[in-house]
Design a protein around this nucleic acid. Structure first.
Length: 663
DNA sequence: GAGCACTGC
């Protein structure tokens, strides 16, 4: 089968303990499914400017292809970039490949993710997040240091990967005149919808790689289920009573609350099971779960017991749990949808796509054969959409458009997207950028000096604008803190059963000026005790998220130094801080009505203060909010008290007709 | 008057 030359062996054999790891690693590399296709693969990659590789899980494509390219001397002095949607993937794959190549991480092989860059001048293979390569492209749109760009996990269609498709295609075209400087592109995906990828990349050839997946028995529900939670519960116990102990189960559900409820119910029912039934260990799994509790899903179960994992879609791609024998798929997912018309974010439970269903099914056959129980009928399955709608078609595009303009891609409305978002989405993004002063009023395709400065920050444009505003208000220190805290998940931790205690503990931090100032107060208190762990526990402050925010703050601080922004503090007077917020968020303002309700100033939408806000029971006349979320009502999240005059000051034209005069 | 899928720069 393999018509290529054998893999070159590495020469260093001893690791100092007298153990020889490299021979084992060499054997492992030769045993991967991709090894037999190596010769053909290399010929195709040599011949074509762009190629598509479809590889099933376990084919070894991500670890091996970059090594083959180096061994085949195909990078011509340039670097190979291999992008991943997730940080952990980039880090762990780079670590693995460095071992296989018997080099130190950061030498020939390295990774580059936010806050952590291990690459050096020697690096030939660089694993990185897709967002990181996109950032690099803003500084160098031709991606000149790379001879090869591999876009891995392309089927996930993250916003970053989707923008990179177009960026890489353009760079390739610009560099095509010069053979020595040519850019090769490889798109790697697990999807079967390959024609779409191929057509986009000028009919690039498609190469198929076999994987190592075990057979999975597929079972559908015979009747449509009206209550998928109840159906999941029934399925769990049916399987539990019929299948041998030790065969672990993975149940896909939609959210934290649902998972915690079912964990309790399963435990209750399990108490009344006959004594000859195997014991049950129920484990929840979702992103917001503290990491030490997440680790529980990886602990092996005692003999004679069965582990049942109840998970969100985090177990679809981000977390791989070993030893799963049975997958129970409710066919539902909680997903955010964005309506460009109303600017509203909607988080709702919806049906999954067929591609997602297959991804879930695959989780049952990683190590051995398995079973997938679909809690919906075969007919229902065939009616599901084949693929998940790419994220770029269902998110706010303000950041994307700002990035494209920073890449000197002028006409964003005709940018070569693989699946273009709605014109309406793109133009409402441009409109927002215009309101922020990031693009020229007459010529929307021209970035202003402010817009150029904004594009440097890894933030949504509104928050980048808030940072720049601090220059004239002299409060960069406070603004950096607030923006960083707004960029992470809540630093306030409220466990279900201790909500009262948490509220009592936070009382001392509360500000009558709103959530932003409250966040600032908590941060200052945290710094005051130097991040003391016990203090965090007593005050219900989420330490992991706080540390993350501090990391972000440091990065933003560096960028501010480079941008020449003056570092100043406004001390105890928070007026300058709130004026900065108005500069970036003035289009998110609401006015109190005579009847005690709020309406937004831009679309006259009825809104309420979110229950998590420190102003929940207050009625300030004018408010600024960070975002609107639609649940049982339309809620403003993270609100700040403002003076309406400030709105006029920053955007007189915008507000002239908007604030009602009959208050 | 009550709530939070998942990534990433």
């Amino acid at each position: 089968m393999n018509s290529g030359n054998p893999l070159p062996k590495r020469q260093r054999f001893s690791n100092g303990n007298g153990m020889d790891q490299s021979e084992d690693l060499y054997q492992h590399r030769c045993s991967l499914p991709i090894y037999s296709a190596r010769g053909k693969l290399m010929r195709e990659l040599r011949r074509n400017a762009s190629s598509i590789v479809i590889g099933e899980t376990g084919s070894g494509k991500t670890t091996q292809i970059p090594q083959y390219l180096v061994e085949g001397n195909m990078c011509k002095g340039g670097t190979i970039a291999c992008t991943q949607p997730r940080r952990v993937a980039a880090i762990s794959i780079a670590t693995r490949v460095a071992k296989e190549m018997n080099v130190n991480l950061g030498e020939e092989v390295g990774y580059c993710v936010r806050f952590d860059d291990t690459t050096s001048a020697k690096t030939k293979i660089k694993y990185m997040t897709d967002g990181m390569l996109l950032r690099e492209a803003i500084l160098d749109p031709k991606l000149s240091k790379y001879s090869f760009v591999i876009l891995d996990e392309a089927h996930e269609r993250t916003v970053h990967t989707d923008v990179l498709f177009g960026v890489v295609k353009k760079a390739q075209k610009q560099r095509s005149g010069n053979e020595a400087r040519a850019l090769k592109v490889l798109v790697m995906s697990a999807t079967m919808d390959v024609d779409h990828f191929s057509r986009y990349f000028n009919n690039a050839p498609v190469l198929y790689l076999q994987g190592r997946q075990h057979p999975i028995q597929l079972l559908y529900s015979s009747d449509s289920q009206s209550d998928y939670l109840f159906a999941a519960m029934v399925a769990v116990f049916q399987i539990h009573q019929k299948q041998p102990a030790g065969e672990d189960m993975l149940v896909f559900l939609t959210g934290q609350e649902e998972i915690e409820t079912l964990v309790r119910s399963i435990k209750e029912v399990a108490r009344d099971l006959p004594s000859d039934c195997p014991g049950i260990v129920v484990t929840p799994m979702y992103a917001a779960l503290p990491s030490h509790l997440q680790m529980k899903v990886f602990q092996p179960t005692q003999p004679g017991r069965r582990k049942i994992i109840l998970s969100t879609n985090i177990a679809e791609t981000s977390v791989t749990i070993p030893g799963i024998k049975h997958v129970i798929d409710t066919g539902r997912v909680k997903a955010k949808s964005y309506q460009p018309g109303s600017g509203l974010d909607l988080l709702k439970v919806q049906w999954i796509s067929q591609a997602q269903a297959w991804q879930r099914t695959g989780r049952a056959g990683r190590e051995d054969s398995g079973t997938c129980w679909r809690l919906y009928t075969e007919n229902e399955f065939t009616r599901l959409p084949a693929n998940t709608i790419p994220e770029i078609q269902r998110c706010n595009l303000a950041s994307v458009v700002l990035q494209l303009l920073a890449l000197n891609i002028r006409d964003v409305l005709t940018f070569d997207f693989m699946d273009p978002p709605k014109k309406e989405s793109l133009s409402s993004a441009l409109e927002q950028l215009q309101l922020l002063g990031a693009v020229d009023k007459e010529n929307n395709q021209q970035l202003t000096p402010i817009g150029r400065q904004m594009s440097v920050f890894p933030l949504e444009p509104r928050l980048a604008r808030v940072i720049l505003a601090s220059k004239q208000h002299g409060c960069l220190e406070e603004i950096l803190t607030i923006v960083s805290l707004l960029s992470v998940e809540s630093i306030q931790h409220s466990p279900q059963n201790k909500r009262e205690a948490a509220l009592a503990a936070w009382r001392k931090f509360l500000s009558s000026e709103g959530d932003h100032v409250t966040l600032l107060t908590i941060y200052r208190a945290y710094k005051g005790v130097k991040g003391n762990k016990d203090w965090c526990f007593e005050n219900f402050v989420h330490q992991r998220n706080m540390r993350h925010a501090i990391e972000i703050r440091a990065q933003l601080r560096d960028l501010c130094v480079k941008a020449g922004l003056p570092f100043m503090s406004c001390g105890q007077d928070t007026t300058p801080v709130r004026k900065c917020l108005v500069q970036g968020l003035f289009m998110n303002s609401a006015e109190l009505q005579r009847d005690g309700t709020y309406i937004t100033l831009d679309r006259k939408q009825a809104v309420s203060i979110h229950p998590s806000s420190c102003l929940f029971q207050c009625k300030p006349a004018y408010l600024l909010y960070n975002e609107l979320v639609q649940t049982t009502k339309c809620y403003m999240r993270n609100v700040c008290v403002i003076d309406p005059q400030w709105l006029y000051d920053v955007a007189p034209d915008y507000f002239r007709q908007r604030v009602s005069r009959n208050r």
